[in-house]
Design a protein around this nucleic acid. Structure first.
Length: 670
RNA sequence: GGGCCUGUAGCUCAGUUGGAUAGAGCGCCUGGCUUCGAACCAGUAGGUCGGGGGUUCGAGUCCCUCCAGGCCCGCCA
């Protein structure tokens, strides 16, 4: 509703300005700094002042008297140096929310692909992976809420060095056969992914101590790529088992996928060959005849350096000066195909990105990988037969790649690849949804018994490292959150059955975790602090969940007292809202609660999920305040009580939807 | 050496394409549970927005420069 009205005002004012002043300026809508200024603020007169060469305040005064009436708007006011503040008709606004027929968003045929999680299938997931998955999953939920068709892909690099190193550990260090590794996977008393976590660190240490053992890695990589022999078999066992563990972990926090495209199929179905031909034809890559890259197919540096400049906000001032900086420097060229004929990681990524847009004449075959409890099917790529009933994947029109910021350079190269193939639009529609890493504070390391060098101890944070085994496992963190929540739940609801207690604790844990991962903006390094992450007070997921529980409690207690919920449609009308909403705190809460869709829209446009988290917190905060001031069930005035009950119910519905958009459950009790 | 990001209250962070009196949480201090359960609410204290220039009606926000910190720049993935 808020969004509808805001757009109506924007369009009406823009039309008025075109007609009256013959000027075409974009009408920006802001939220006033102070709530008593009104519901919308228009700074448009400031920009208009430049073209009209008149004082902004004068223009505003003139415009306020000349603007035609707009449905739902009560008044316009001039403020400060030339703002136009807009006040809504409260009665009409309330009434429109009463008989709201949640207009289903127009579903578009445009498909958006979001790729996220992408964890190497060689060890347990850690907290950095959680940030990726929560951010990606929230983006998906927001897009779907806005009516988009979204396909979620979780890319599995099952042929890379990371998997190879764990295979090396099992085969060469522990002398285990594929059968013995499979036995470890099947052992119910063993966390296979935790076992691999340690083994991976051990193998890395071994390489350091005995560099000649790196031959094992080369042999294993080769075996995995050709998919022959015991090493390859162990590789399949490891990666499949770990992928399943990752899916279980993500399932705990409500993250699901549609497709697992696997690197093994990118290789075996020769996606790269198709992409290679295209790149050669278009001259995007060239065969280097001499120098350090002799015998390699390379992408010249100027391609992605120029591409960078066009993507970023138009170069600096002197472009001539900049031109000279782009030199024919071989050091900067990016090798795509090695001199031995094998393709690099970026090359495969370009091929994959082309496939996602439907730009190469190749497709995977698909097999079902698992069925989620809600009945949704998760598919995986396959080089074999494939299932004819699989849906059509790929062919996206916009692609979000949720990958941490350290991959920016490679993502730029991928985009440059598209651009030099002439796919300008697709390059623009390839979004690197980047985010900063999750690091550990020295204090956190100390609490977890992780040894640090003296140098690291002096830093404000330490990077997570799988090779060093340095990190916090996702499942460990989730377990800690559940334990802490369970303690609280037990002390508050001693009579509740244990199973129920555990369910509530899990919901609170998920809320705490997902909110924590969302509340920081994407460019902020999260210096992970255990105590901070385990907090349930203040700006946290449980705080927001608690507000919804309070609203629910009011409605439940009403029923327990034998009173029935009033028939709001009959008892409330425009006049009633006008009267009740004259009270400022009620109006402000209602207004904020009705802004959910607007918040989601803004969050997607700004490509910043943290904005939605902050909106949810602000809304919860306002309700907690409201809750404290109005003792709804004891309200003596029946009419007012009806209104307040409606407010509680409306708030509950809206907050629940926003929480759901962030993948945060709304517990029945807390 | 080049590219990107960050610097705002004691700590952790927001700050809406330049706009009205710079905000929140935590922590500290004070007050509030016989209530729809306090995982809460109210209040106090706490700021040269890293430093210096510039652009204009207006700068935490844009430009330049310096300082500090982080990430990336491989025939690894």
């Amino acid at each position: 509703m808020f969004l509808v009205l805001a757009h109506r005002v924007r369009d009406a004012v823009a039309a008025h300005i075109r007609q009256r002043y013959d000027a075409n300026v974009s009408v920006v809508i802001e939220q006033p700094r102070q709530s008593n200024f009104g519901e919308l603020a228009l700074p448009v007169c400031f920009s208009l002042a430049k073209t009209l060469k008149r004082a902004p305040r004068r223009i505003a005064e003139e415009m306020v008297t000349e603007l035609p009436p707009i449905e739902g708007v009560a008044s316009f006011e001039v403020a400060a140096g030339g703002y136009i503040n807009v006040r809504f008709d409260r009665g009409a606004y309330g009434e429109s929310l009463l008989c709201r027929t949640a207009a289903a968003p127009e579903s578009s045929t445009r498909k958006i692909i979001v790729e996220h999680t992408n964890i190497n299938p060689n060890k347990a997931a850690h907290i950095g992976h959680l940030r990726n998955a929560v951010m990606g999953d929230t983006l998906v939920r927001m897009l779907r809420r806005l009516g988009h068709t979204v396909e979620v892909q979780n890319y599995i690099d099952n042929t890379g060095v990371q998997v190879a190193d764990v295979v090396v550990g099992f085969h060469f260090l522990e002398k285990k056969t594929p059968g013995q590794v499979q036995a470890l996977v099947d052992d119910p008393d063993l966390r296979f992914d935790f076992r691999c976590w340690d083994l991976y660190a051990r193998t890395s240490q071994h390489y350091k101590a005995e560099p000649e053992s790196l031959e094992w890695r080369a042999a294993t990589l080769h075996a995995i790529e050709s998919d022959e022999g015991e090493l390859a078999e162990t590789g399949r066992i490891v990666s499949n088992a770990i992928v399943n563990k990752h899916l279980d972990t993500m399932g705990r926090i409500g993250v699901e996928y549609d497709l697992l495209p696997r690197e093994s199929e990118i290789l075996h179905l020769r996606f790269w060959d198709a992409a290679f031909e295209l790149l050669k034809e278009q001259g995007a890559i060239v065969l280097e005849a001499e120098g350090k890259n002799k015998g390699c197919w390379i992408m010249p540096a100027r391609l992605f350096q120029e591409s960078l400049k066009t993507t970023r906000k138009l170069g600096r001032k002197g472009s001539a000066e900049n031109q000279s900086e782009i030199t024919e420097d071989q050091d900067q060229d990016k090798v795509i195909v090695r001199s031995n004929g094998t393709v690099t990681y970026v090359g495969k990524d370009i091929a994959y990105q082309l496939w996602k847009f439907g730009l190469i004449d190749k497709d995977f075959r698909y097999v079902s990988f698992r069925t989620y409890t809600d009945g949704r099917e998760l598919w995986a790529s396959s080089a074999g037969e494939g299932d004819a009933s699989a849906p059509r994947f790929g062919h996206g029109e916009k692609i979000y790649n949720v990958i941490d910021v350290r991959q920016s350079y490679l993502q730029d190269v991928v985009r440059a690849g598209l651009r030099s193939l002439g796919f300008e639009q697709q390059a623009r529609d390839s979004v690197h949804f980047s985010y900063e890493m999750v690091a550990l504070t020295p204090r956190c390391c100390a609490e977890l018994g992780i040894e640090l060098t003296d140098e690291d101890k002096r830093r404000s944070f330490v990077e997570v490292s799988g090779r060093k085994g340095l990190g916090v496992k996702a499942d460990d963190l989730i377990d800690m959150l559940i334990d802490k929540a369970l303690e609280e739940v037990r002390s508050r609801h001693a009579d509740t059955p244990e199973e129920e207690q555990h369910r509530i604790a899990s919901e609170i844990a998920v809320g705490a975790l997902r909110y924590f991962m969302l509340r920081f903006s994407r460019t902020t390094v999260i210096a992970f602090d255990l105590q901070e992450a385990l907090s349930f007070d203040g700006e946290t997921g449980p705080y927001v969940q608690y507000a919804s529980v309070r609203a629910r409690n009011i409605l439940r207690t009403l029923a327990e007292r034998g009173e029935s919920l009033p028939d709001f449609d009959k008892q409330l009308d425009r006049m009633a809202f006008e009267e009740q909403l004259a009270q400022e705190d009620c109006w402000q809460l209602l207004l904020e609660a009705s802004r959910g869709e607007w918040a989601i829209d803004r969050s997607v446009t700004a490509e910043e999920p943290a904005q939605l988290a902050r909106y949810a917190f602000r809304l919860a905060q306002m309700f907690n305040n409201f809750y404290h001031q109005h003792h709804i069930l004891n309200e003596p005035d029946e009419f007012r009580k009806t209104f307040l009950l409606w407010m509680a119910r409306f708030f509950l519905g809206e907050l629940t939807r926003v929480l759901d958009t962030m993948g945060i459950p709304s517990p029945k009790v807390m």
